[in-house]
Write a protein that binds this DNA or RNA. Structure first.
Length: 365
DNA sequence: AAAATAGTCAACCGCAGTTCA
DNA sequence: TTGAACTGCGGTTGACTATTT
């Protein structure tokens, strides 16, 4: 046998398949704190039984804070068509024109929607597609009012598109009212019925996050997770400590399947990385079980966050309102038992994200 | 109501390019 | 200069969900 290339990881010793919310949380928290200088070493340091490649993919495509979720707009679709016409299957390059979108996402959209929309047959779709496309997309580009950042340009001049995107980034940075990630802009009217709106109010500018890698709001609104159960069981202090303890720089996770390790870890599922969390939370609230467990959980949270002391009569909703209106600063509800993973500007976001089922309307308490 | 089919998308795989000792 | 290590990219797969029969 030849030497060949050393595999990036031992496939028998890494976990594969869908990511659990607990794994997501661990990855997010680790990257918030330590960044991701070395993907290969990251899983071990973060205590994840995953291959570095898998961690990278999960972060880039799903967890990173600057991701934009939701359906593609008509304008975005038109722009993808135009860019694909210019660049072919250069998904990464195309994705670079869409802040918050990933190459994987765009590739999927192309393969599932746009190809069909343009009436492609598979047989036509090999080789240099960009050339084949130019004739076909001319019809669709007629509808292209195009995304704002591409509008007005001559069709499919790749270099020009790159310039436009650079200009657009500058423009976005200048116009973004949340440009300083350290400043939380409090909305005049809080919509406590819509937690995602609320969270989005605090979402920092993606450009800033490139440097800070600190916020982790994205996963809460992402979709498609395989998670199916809302686990609102109270984590033990040991579990909380375990989740956030990255104090050992060379923390060594057993590479053998260690049932205790994973049981401890997976037993606590505070983060579900999709909006199913919210739906489930709603469903949970409407059931007796959910109501009861929510109260217990909320009580625990209030206790953990120190709300039962200075603000003993504060309900969950009032708590949320206090935080969002600045009456209650994040520092004041961080407690010793919960090592701070980010230690930066947005601790409050972390907690909203970790417990999205925090009561956000009157029916919850 | 159940089975079949189609659609979607997260995740994996392998290769290419880059970096670094 | 070379080759190993690492990262990033594009193609593909397969699990899951939605829709149709």
């Amino acid at each position: 046998m030849g030497k060949g290339r050393t595999p990036c990881c031992d496939k028998n010793k890494v976990k594969r398949g869908p990511w659990s919310p607990a794994e997501d949380l661990r990855l997010i928290t680790f990257i918030q704190k330590n960044g991701h200088d070395n993907w290969r070493a990251l899983p071990k340091q973060a205590g994840l039984l995953r291959c570095g490649k898998s961690c990278r993919l999960r972060w880039i495509n799903y967890l990173r804070p600057d991701l934009k979720r939701g359906n593609f707009t008509r304008e975005e679709e038109d722009s993808i068509i135009r860019l694909h016409e210019a660049w072919g299957n250069k998904w990464s390059k195309i994705a670079s024109q869409f802040p918050g979108r990933t190459d994987n996402e765009i590739k999927n959209v192309w393969n599932t929607h746009l190809k069909k929309k343009l009436g492609f047959k598979n047989s036509e779709f090999c080789g240099d597609e960009s050339k084949e496309l130019s004739s076909i997309t001319s019809s669709s580009s007629s509808s292209s009012s195009s995304a704002s950042f591409l509008s007005g340009g001559k069709p499919s001049v790749a270099g020009e598109l790159e310039h436009q995107s650079a200009d657009q980034e500058t423009s976005m940075a200048n116009n973004n009212p949340h440009h300083d990630p350290c400043i939380l802009t409090i909305p005049e009217e809080l919509d406590l019925d819509s937690p995602m709106e609320l969270i989005n109010q605090f979402r920092p500018d993606p450009k800033d996050l490139k440097e800070l890698t600190s916020s982790s709001v994205s996963s809460i609104e992402s979709n498609g997770s395989s998670s199916s159960q809302l686990d609102i069981s109270r984590p033990s202090e040991e579990q909380m400590d375990f989740l956030f303890d990255f104090s050992e720089p060379n923390y060594d996770i057993p590479l053998e399947p260690d049932s205790d390790f994973w049981n401890t870890f997976d037993g606590f599922v505070p983060l579900q990385s999709n909006e199913v969390q919210l739906n489930q939370a709603e469903a949970c609230k409407s059931s007796n079980y959910g109501q009861h467990e929510n109260e217990k959980w909320l009580s625990y949270l209030e206790s953990e966050l120190g709300l039962d002391q200075p603000t003993a009569d504060c309900t969950g909703q009032e708590f949320l309102a206090q935080v969002t209106t600045g009456q209650l600063l994040p520092e004041t509800f961080l407690c010793d038992k919960m090592p701070n993973p980010a230690a930066e500007f947005d601790q409050s976001l972390d907690y909203f994200q970790m417990w999205p089922f925090l009561p956000h309307n009157n029916s919850s308490i």
